[in-house]
Computed example of a mutant assay.
Amino acid sequence: MNETNNLGVLLADDQPVMRLGFAALLRQLDDAFVFHEADTPKGALELARSVEPTIALIDLFLAGSLGFDLIKRLRAAAPGMAILVVSAHDERLYAERALRAGARGYVMKHAAAKAMKQAVQAVRGGKVWLSEALRDDLVNRIASAGQPDDPAELHSLSDREITVFRLIGQGLKKGDIARELSLSPHTVETYRSNIKKKLGLASGAELYRQAFLRSQTLPV
């Protein structure tokens, strides 16, 4: 374990400029932070195990891979490390899933520096951090059903169903999705059926239409 692990920060993003920006921002909070950088899930896991940082800032789609499994593995590798997801993708769709996977907070990459600092300080102090807009959205979803075109409606889908739905929106057919995800066509069809049921879609054509329309809120 690194002797300075209580000041260690894992920066996991495949864009060097983002890691540089995160480091510069965090130095304004504590210039004693020691930064450890990774640009792949494998690299992030190796650093988590060897360094055991106090906090990790990770991109949800590190190296193009959906990061919920990475969050779980990071938690297992370094149980005391607080994970803050910093993402360009819709917090209404992904933040709650990230928290369920084990993250302590979710902040958008375009957030103001003040919000980013607040998020880091919150998770470092053992608290959960979500934007005010997202907290309001969660309260509204509890109080009333989401509107048909609200991305939050997709909240009912599992992580794997979200992935299949995203690929349908990109125009991939059942066989293509099966190859992409290393699944059988039968399993993909089961996911398609579950998605239609959860979203109240009557046909495959309607599924393709909705997936295409929602693709603007889902990462490519």
Rank of each mutant, 00 (worst) to 15 (best):
D69P: 00
I177T: 05
H89P: 01
R166T: 08
H155A: 11
V123T: 05
L29R: 09
G200P: 13
K117D: 02
L26F: 04
L181D: 11
A38F: 00
L10M: 08
M1S: 13
D31S: 14
S65Y: 13
Q147T: 15
G146H: 14
Y94N: 06
F35G: 05
Y94P: 00
I71Y: 02
V128E: 07
I195W: 06
L25M: 10
S131R: 03
V120D: 00
T54K: 12
A38V: 03
D13T: 10
T217S: 07
K196F: 01
E206H: 02
M81P: 02
S50W: 02
R75Y: 01
A113V: 14
V128C: 11
E180C: 03
G171I: 06
K196N: 05
L218D: 02
G64E: 12
R73A: 15
A23F: 02
L218R: 05
A143P: 02
L57H: 09
D90H: 14
L134S: 05
R192D: 00
D150F: 07
K72Y: 00
E206S: 06
H110C: 08
D149I: 07
I55S: 09
W129E: 07
Q28F: 00
K117E: 09
R73W: 04
L47N: 08
S184V: 03
I71G: 13
L47G: 05
R141Y: 10
T54N: 10
N2F: 13
H89V: 07
L218A: 05
H155Y: 08
H155P: 02
V9Q: 07
K127N: 15
D69A: 14
Y191A: 04
G200H: 05
A111H: 02
L201V: 03
L130H: 09
A88H: 09
N2Q: 11
E153H: 05
A122W: 02
R75C: 11
Q118H: 09
R209D: 03
G102L: 04
V86S: 08
A202T: 05
R19E: 04
L25C: 06
A95Q: 04
R100K: 14
S144Q: 14
K127G: 14
L84D: 11
W129I: 06
A119P: 00
G64R: 14
Q121T: 03
V164N: 10
L207Y: 01
F68R: 15
L47R: 15
P219Q: 02
A78N: 13
S215L: 01
L213T: 05
D59E: 12
W129T: 11
E180N: 07
A202Q: 10
F22E: 14
D137H: 12
L11S: 11
M81F: 07
